[in-house]
């Protein structure tokens, strides 16, 4: 990270939390227990006290299994959900408590790319209409000619021929649609892009095309990415820093190189070992016990203790704090903190 830290980070999350109510009405909260009717509210703890920062120009990756809250983090940052607690700062200003109207100027700086390019483009609009709409909306003063030039430029830069602009989304393949979705994010000239599993729905060779496109856009436009993915090989290639999320909490946050060369949290190690390798016949895959617990009524103590091979009583009682390691990574694990014997 840079030494001159005079500028605030582009994005900063402070103790971010998101809980979803499971029981919507009063009657749903009533339970019959031990001969008595009790009232009990169940909540999904999707994101629990997540703090992290993204400097300008960084690619901050958030990884984890399904249900770990990574998409919720993306949606909170994009302002599509309001946090239950905690703060989101963008470029030094707090943005999570802004009104819709006050968010408007930020919307053109912050754009989102979604996983499914089939669902994120309006099927009844030609791609030209889809691409022009955000430009017009954010730049009402622009003339028709300027809008046309801007959109055509962006289309060419993502490898979508402007002569296709009269076509509808269904006439394109998945990879082309994802390019169009990226083009739509780029037309308003953003500085920050939130990409939620942007290549998971695509074929290997097309994944490479789209990743290359995102790399180019980063170099040409100086973009910062918040990249949500479950694919660790993509993280290793594309990310500058990685946050590993488990049950809505960060277990490890480190520079990509540090994380891949020296993973510390038992969960990170298991996750890395599960990636099928091309060249080894049988890797030393660390088998996790059981499955990810439900985020309703979180387990006490360390969220990972039920599947961890090193868990002791302390892990079951006390939630570990994220502690800085000598190599700059941040790890939330009693075993790492107190250096219990591990192999």
């Amino acid at each position: 990270m840079s030494e001159a830290k005079t500028n605030p980070p582009l994005l900063e999350l402070r103790g971010l939390e998101k809980r979803f109510e499971l029981d919507k009405g009063f009657l749903e909260t009533l339970r019959f227990k031990g001969g008595r009717i009790t009232r009990e509210r169940r909540q999904v703890h999707a994101v629990n006290s997540v703090s992290m920062t993204a400097e300008k120009g960084e690619v901050l990756c958030v990884v984890g299994e399904s249900g770990c809250g990574k998409s919720t983090v993306a949606r909170l940052v994009a302002g599509l959900l309001t946090p239950s607690a905690g703060e989101i700062h963008y470029d030094g200003e707090r943005i999570d408590n802004r009104t819709r109207k006050a968010m408007m100027p930020l919307r053109s700086k912050m754009q989102m790319i979604f996983q499914n390019p089939y669902a994120s483009l309006n099927p009844r609009m030609t791609i030209w209409q889809s691409l022009v709409e955000p430009v017009r909306h954010h730049n009402p003063q622009m003339s028709k000619g300027e809008v046309r030039d801007r959109v055509s430029d962006v289309m060419r830069s993502v490898g979508v021929d402007p002569s296709w602009s009269k076509r509808y989304p269904h006439e394109f393949s998945g990879g082309q649609r994802q390019r169009i979705a990226i083009a739509r994010a780029l037309t308003v000239d953003p500085e920050f892009i939130i990409a939620d599993e942007p290549i998971s729905a695509l074929d290997v060779s097309i994944q490479a095309q789209v990743l290359n496109l995102m790399l180019e856009a980063r170099e040409e436009r100086g973009l910062t990415y918040l990249f949500i993915t479950h694919d660790l090989s993509v993280v290793q290639h594309f990310g500058t820093r990685v946050a590993v999320l488990y049950l809505g909490a960060i277990c490890e946050l480190a520079d990509t190189q540090t994380l891949f060369s020296n993973p510390k949290h038992p969960y990170t190690r298991a996750l890395l070992s599960a990636v099928p390798q091309l060249k080894d016949d049988r890797p030393n895959h660390i088998r996790l016990k059981g499955e990810i617990p439900t985020p309703i009524n979180l387990p006490k103590g360390c969220p990972f203790h039920s599947r961890c091979a090193y868990a002791r009583d302390q892990c079951r009682m006390e939630q570990p704090k994220a502690v800085h390691q000598p190599d700059g990574s941040l790890v939330a694990c009693h075993a790492v903190e107190e250096d219990w014997p591990r192999d």
Binding site: S173, A208, Q209, N212, L215, S233, H237, Q257
Partner: peptide, 24 residues
């Protein structure tokens, strides 16, 4: 060769991936 080379682990981190141009 294209399929294997397109995998991110076949390229140095941060470099352009070796993509196969076009579509099936």
């Amino acid at each position: 060769q294209g399929l294997i080379n397109a995998l991110p682990q076949q390229t140095l981190p941060g470099h352009r991936l070796k993509q196969i141009p076009g579509n099936m």
